Amino acid sequence: MKVANLVGVLALLALAFSFATAYDPSPLQDLCVAINDTDSAVLVNGKFCKNPSLYTPDDFSFSGFDVPGNTSNQLGVHVNIVTVDLMPGLNTLGVSMARIDFAPNGGLNPPHYHPRASELLLVLEGTLYAGFVTSNPDHRLFAKILKPGDLIVFPFGLVHFQLNIGKAPAVAIAALTSQNPGVNTVANAIFGASPSINPSVITTAFHLDRKTCGGSPGSRMGEPYISTL
């Protein structure tokens, strides 16, 4: 009887473990609408695999991180990210990497988040003010001034940023936990949505008036009223 009970307990534990360890794979794209027609379907969550006999060292390497990015833009930042599209050998490995260049005196990688990755940032040159904000309900800010050799981690899916507070250019390397981490810049998503978000949503959420948002009292749903950043 005791043996039968033990077998029953082990069976229940095995069943519970199978449920606990089973989960859907992380998506590698923003959207994926289900369809039954395979002729109209597309491949997602990765790439087709090359015949192993055709692998070359170039599949597993990338050159160019030594080249400074052009930071002569509104934000004074340039991000060169190497994902599976540039290094095919990253496929299924769950990692990618980026070089981020910042212009002196205020180059900004603006508040954004990666929907499919955590990020580890290493400062190589310059002085950065960097941090992240936790989710609802606390919205706690964790931020530090970073110098060459310093690291900071941005947890999965949380809004984070980096600002060059030095008088010289700054450079950082970021490692991300996805072959396709994605990026959603908060300001662009809110103020640059297409079609535009109704002014009432923006003004109420940010405690602004319509003039600040670029709208007019007569603006209607779907009318463009906010320019893309």
Rank of each mutant, 00 (worst) to 15 (best):
Q29E: 15
A189K: 01
C32E: 09
R140I: 15
P68D: 08
L151P: 06
Y129C: 02
T134Q: 13
T204F: 01
T228H: 15
K2N: 12
A41M: 12
L158S: 01
N45L: 02
I152G: 03
G76N: 02
N73Q: 05
V186S: 12
G131D: 00
S194H: 11
Y113E: 00
F48D: 13
R220H: 14
V133E: 02
A41I: 09
V201M: 09
N198L: 04
L54S: 12
F65Q: 04
R220F: 09
H160R: 02
F154R: 02
V95N: 10
F142Q: 05
G64V: 07
F17W: 13
M87H: 10
A175H: 08
G182A: 04
L163M: 10
N45F: 12
F60L: 10
N105K: 11
D58K: 05
T21Q: 05
D150Y: 05
D150W: 00
V159N: 02
V82P: 01
A11P: 07
G106N: 05
A98F: 00
A41W: 04
L229I: 13
E125V: 14
L86E: 10
L128F: 00
L122V: 11
T127C: 10
P52G: 09
H78G: 04
F17A: 14
V79Q: 12
Y113H: 05
A34L: 09
V153G: 11
D24L: 15
L124V: 06
P195M: 14
T134P: 01
P115S: 09
P224Q: 10
N184M: 15
V153Q: 11
N164W: 00
K50P: 06
P195N: 07
P148W: 07
N105A: 08
L229Y: 10
D66T: 12
S18V: 09
T71F: 08
N198Y: 14
I197V: 14
F62Q: 12
G131I: 09
V67A: 06
Q162N: 12
F132T: 02
P224E: 11
V77C: 06
H139V: 13
P155R: 00
V201L: 13
A193I: 11
I145Y: 02
R220C: 06
D59G: 08
F156E: 03
A175S: 08
S40C: 13
A11V: 14
P111H: 01
N105H: 07
F142C: 04
H114N: 06
A4S: 12
G89I: 06
H112V: 13
V7L: 15
T204W: 11
P169Q: 00
A205C: 08
H139A: 04
F206H: 04
P68T: 04
C213T: 15
A16F: 04
S196K: 13
A14K: 07
F206M: 08
L146E: 06
G64T: 08
A16T: 11
I197T: 15
L146M: 00
L12V: 10
L163S: 05
Q29F: 08
S26D: 11
D58T: 05
L163E: 01
F191E: 05
A14T: 09
P195F: 12
N70R: 08
V95T: 10
S118A: 13
